[in-house]
């Protein structure tokens, strides 16, 4: 065998190997492609067709027929904090002063002060006044002060149209339903708390026992049964209003018709669905 022959043979065997490799690559790609195709894409295509009509199996409820929204009239709130305790009882929220799905803030302008003094029920003095982290009340620290203006502002998840929390969830454990509620799947959440970081309103809280993030669901288990969310149910002064925007007779539709409303932190682009009446420039 000459040098030349050897070269040819090497080339030949190279060629054979290359062909084998290409075929192998082709088969591999095809296999992978089939899996991807059958696994996800087809499933996704099918779901896209059916999703429009299909709805989760909730008795007597069709999420295509509702569009929920929430209103807060801060001029009516008396700061009794029944909503805060009711929410915790209804939803099994951690019983301490660091985990809330809803809370109430107090804004007080003392005479001559440019900026408001702000506190919530979690403030140390308020906890001291209630004597427990399971019951909440505002202490009466301003009773002898010269007050220019004071008011309470209830806060809760805004169930944004463009929720930053859903955007950053790495797994799809938190999502927006068709009827406009942002929910969280406790059995799928990995507990990374990226959503807690991303929420501009600080409404997400972490459940250390389950190792998952928790949030306000607008009491999805209640509203899908025709009930009001627990905080709305117990509000004694109608400071909280809830309802279906698809129904012009609903309290929220009337609230939005009859008031000039604002939302919190509109600059975030989140487009909140909790609408406020009677808040002030200092409300954060």
């Amino acid at each position: 065998m000459t040098q030349e022959d050897k070269k040819i043979e090497v080339k030949g065997s190279n060629l054979v190997r290359r062909n084998f490799f290409l075929r192998m690559l082709g088969i591999g790609t095809a296999c992978a492609g089939t899996w991807v195709g059958s696994g996800n894409l087809i499933a996704r295509a099918q779901s896209a067709e059916t999703a429009a009509a299909a709805a989760p199996k909730i008795p007597d409820y069709d999420w295509n027929k509702h569009k929920w929204a929430f209103g807060v009239d801060a001029t009516r709130c008396i700061g009794c904090l029944r909503c805060v305790e009711a929410c915790k009882a209804e939803n099994g929220v951690t019983q301490d002063a660091h985990h809330f799905r809803t809370w109430v803030e107090r804004y007080v302008y003392l005479e001559g002060d440019e900026r408001a003094h702000v506190d919530s029920q979690s403030d140390a003095q308020n906890i001291a006044a209630s004597g427990s982290e399971k019951e909440f009340r505002f202490d009466n620290r301003y009773k002898d002060a010269k007050i220019e203006k004071a008011f309470f502002v209830p806060k809760l998840c805004n169930h944004c149209t463009h929720p930053a929390c859903v955007q950053v969830c790495p797994t799809g454990a938190t999502y927006q339903t068709k009827d406009g509620v942002v929910l969280i799947d406790h059995s799928y959440c990995i507990g990374c708390q990226y959503c807690v970081q991303a929420c501009p309103y600080g409404v997400r809280e972490f459940n250390h026992v389950l190792g998952v993030t928790d949030k306000c669901t607008w009491c999805y288990h209640r509203i899908t049964k025709g009930l009001q969310p627990a905080c709305v149910e117990v509000c004694p002064v109608e400071a909280r209003v809830f309802g279906d925007r698809n129904d012009p007779q609903s309290p929220i539709s009337a609230f939005l018709r009859n008031n000039r409303v604002s939302v919190l932190k509109p600059e975030t682009g989140n487009a909140p669905n909790v609408f406020y009446v009677g808040i002030d420039k200092e409300v954060c």
Partner: peptide, 9 residues
């Protein structure tokens, strides 16, 4: 229904 576990709703 979207990028999440549909049964969870």
């Amino acid at each position: 229904y979207g990028h999440y576990r549909g049964d969870s709703v």
